[in-house]
């Protein structure tokens, strides 16, 4: 069944070097010789400390940056091909949306629904279709009642939901979240993550979530860890987070529960399986303690 799914992103030996603007020469590549593929419907978290190249990788996938070397194929189109035109790029961008870090700097209009309509308007859709998509997208993020509000009066989480609606209105197949939760309060984060998961589960949208938060990454179906422009780990969250010591070497931490169990293991205790989420860790602890009933 796995091989029936389409590959949405295929990166082969991607390298990207920021052009130095008169500063240091021979800047190290932000992304160097990275190969990976993303299948349709996956929910991927990309981790890495600052400067590890994770954001650059996202911007390559969305054609904001052009790879210095390597081959990149997005939704079946090779974007590094010589005959890949600007027209092709804009056609492809409607299918691969991106939600950015700062919610303020991606909202264009002074009214929420006008902002959600911005993408479809750019695509040149008919008015009735735009209206339908705007209502649908606002519904999908639970912001219908704010349709006529001014964006600057909303909370960070609400703004970010509007930004997601703006992308959804273009009916993308893939959405990249470039640290979209990092400027939000815990409540806003939870809202946005819940929407991501639902879009992935119910709408079948491929989600690529770049984040600092391990607990968010633990909820993905696959985790890619970047370090110094290269992929350090690529696998299921349970596999990746079982290498707690290696993660520490990369300046990262596993989710809190996993860290705790890791410490306990080092102290001589043993646990079954690979507990990952808070709930699983609680259960593993309870089991180890022999109780297990009331958690």
């Amino acid at each position: 069944m796995e091989d029936k799914k389409k590959t949405v992103i295929l990166a082969e030996h991607l390298t990207y070097v920021y052009e130095d603007d008169g500063g240091a020469h021979n800047a190290p590549p932000a992304v160097s010789d990275v190969s990976f593929s993303v299948e349709e419907g996956e929910y991927i978290a990309i981790l890495g400390h600052n400067g590890s190249g994770k954001s650059t990788l996202a911007k390559l996938c969305n054609m904001i940056f052009t790879p210095t070397e390597g081959r990149l194929t997005v939704l079946g189109k090779e974007v590094t091909a010589k005959d890949f035109s600007e027209e092709d790029m804009f056609a492809l961008r409607a299918d691969i949306g991106m939600v950015f870090q700062n919610p303020d700097n991606q909202l264009v209009a002074t009214v929420v629904e006008e902002d959600v309509a911005f993408g479809p308007e750019n695509l040149g859709l008919a008015r009735e279709e735009i209206r339908r998509r705007v209502n649908g997208a606002l519904g999908a993020v639970g912001m219908e009642e704010y349709a006529r509000h001014a964006p600057h009066k909303l909370s960070g989480g609400q703004k970010q939901r509007i930004a997601i609606a703006g992308i959804l209105a273009m009916k993308p197949k893939v959405i990249l979240f470039d640290e979209s939760t990092s400027m939000l309060d815990p409540l806003g984060r939870a809202e946005v993550v819940a929407i991501m998961e639902r879009l992935n589960r119910e709408e079948g949208i491929t989600v690529i979530h770049i984040t600092h938060y391990m607990d968010e990454a633990a909820r993905a179906s696959r985790v890619i860890v970047m370090n110094d422009g290269r992929i350090a780990f690529d696998g299921k969250p349970s596999e990746v987070f079982s290498n707690v010591d290696k993660l520490h070497d990369l300046g990262l931490e596993a989710p809190q529960g996993v860290e705790l169990l890791h410490e306990l293991k080092r102290a001589g205790l043993s646990f079954e399986g690979h507990p990952l989420t808070e709930q699983e860790c609680i259960e593993a602890l309870a089991k180890m303690l022999g109780g297990g009933a009331n958690v």
């Binding site: 969305n62 904001i64 804009f90 961008r93 949306g97 991106m98 911005f118 993408g119 703006g166 273009m170």
Partner: peptide, 9 residues
């Protein structure tokens, strides 16, 4: 950048 990503031309 955000506007370009939303296909603004």
């Amino acid at each position: 950048v955000a506007m370009e990503c939303r296909c603004y031309r």
